[in-house]
Each structure stands twice: as C-alpha cells, then as structure tokens.
Computed example of a mutant assay.
Amino acid sequence: MRQFYVFINCELGHTYDVAASLVDKLDEAPMVHSISGAFDLLAHFGIEDDGDIGRFVNEKVQTIPGIKDTQTIICFNAFTRDRGLG
C-alpha cells in the first residue's frame, strides 16, 4: 500500500461536512482529523502500490464539495514497534 496524507482547507462552515464525506465515501481514508493551524483537516489515505496518488487526489479528494485547497504529503517508510530499524 502507498500511504499519504492530505492537508485540507475547507470552505468556511464546511469542515465537518467535508470530513464526513471523506470517511463515508472513500474506503481509502481510514482516518480524518480536524486540526488547528493553517489547515482544517488532515486525512490519511492508503491506495494500492500501482495507484497514482496525484490522480487519486485530483479526482477523488479535490472533487468533494466544500474543499477549497489541498497539500499532499507522500510517505516513504512507516516505523512502528513491530517494524523499526533494528
């Protein structure tokens, strides 16, 4: 799986609607957080290894009503207690 995060800015008054749409409509979004700072939401996504992240964000995420802007962060490695460096 290819893992990535998307910071999302929403139209005023639509943050909770956007969050609900992401988790309800996209199986690839296991978790969406409301956050403080420059963005309204932080969404975690996982797509198949041969998936196109740019196309996914463009066609599946940015088309959700109420989304104003996005910034995508692509993950290289995941470090967990059961899968670390050693």
Rank of each mutant, 00 (worst) to 15 (best):
Ala20His: 10
Val32Phe: 01
Leu41Gly: 07
Leu26Ala: 04
Asp49Ala: 08
Pro65Tyr: 00
Val23His: 02
Ile35Cys: 07
Asp50Tyr: 00
Gln71Lys: 13
Ala43Met: 03
Phe7Gly: 00
Gly13Ile: 12
Ala19Val: 04
Leu85Asp: 15
Met31Phe: 13
Ala19Ile: 00
Ile53Ser: 12
Thr70Arg: 11
Ile8Asp: 00
Arg55Trp: 04
Gly84Phe: 10
Ile73Tyr: 09
Phe76Gly: 05
Thr70Phe: 10
Ile64Lys: 08
Tyr5Thr: 07
Val57Pro: 01
Glu28Ser: 11
Cys75Leu: 03
Ile74Ser: 11
Leu12Phe: 07
Ser21Pro: 09
Asp50Val: 06
His14Ile: 02
Ile64Glu: 11
Val6Tyr: 08
Asp27Lys: 08
Tyr5Ile: 06
His44Ser: 01
Leu41Cys: 00
Asp50Asn: 05
Ile74Arg: 13
Thr72Gln: 05
Phe39Gln: 08
Leu12Ala: 15
Gln3Thr: 15
Asp69Tyr: 09
Gly54Asp: 06
Leu26Asp: 03
Arg2Ala: 08
Glu59Ile: 05
Arg81Val: 12
Phe7Pro: 00
Phe45Gln: 04
Glu48Gln: 11
Ala78Thr: 14
Ala43His: 01
Thr72Ala: 03
Val6Asn: 02
Ile74Trp: 10
Met31His: 13
Gly66Asn: 12
Asn77Cys: 03
Ser34Ala: 05
Leu12Asn: 15
Glu28Lys: 06
Asp40Trp: 03
Asp17Ile: 02
Ile73Arg: 01
Asp40Lys: 09
Met1Val: 09
Gln62Ala: 07
Gln3Asn: 10
Asp49Pro: 07
Pro65Trp: 00
Gln71Ser: 15
Val6Thr: 12
Ser34His: 11
Gly66Glu: 07
Gly84Gln: 08
Tyr16Asp: 14
Ala29Tyr: 01
Ile64Arg: 09
Gly86Ala: 15
Met31Ser: 12
Lys60Ala: 15
Ile35Ala: 08
Lys68Leu: 13
Gly51Trp: 03
Val6Ser: 07
Tyr16Cys: 05
Thr15Ala: 14
Val18Asn: 11
Phe7Ser: 10
Ile47Gln: 08
Ala78Ser: 15
Asp49Thr: 03
His44Asn: 12
Val18Phe: 05
Phe7Val: 01
Tyr5Lys: 05
Arg55His: 15
Ala20Asp: 12
Val32Leu: 06
Gln62Phe: 06
Gly66Tyr: 01
Asp17Arg: 09
Gly46Gln: 12
Gln3Val: 06
Thr15Asp: 02
Lys60Cys: 13
Thr72Lys: 04
Arg81Met: 10
Ile64Met: 03
Val23Met: 07
Leu42Ile: 10
Ser36Asn: 07
Gly13Trp: 15
Phe76Val: 12
Arg81Tyr: 02
Gln62Trp: 10
Lys25Val: 02
Met31Asn: 10
Leu12His: 01
Arg2Met: 06
Gln62Leu: 08
Gln3Glu: 08
Ser21Met: 10
Leu42Arg: 04
Asn77Phe: 14
Phe7Lys: 13
Ala20Leu: 07
Asp40Cys: 02
Val18Ser: 00
Leu41Val: 05
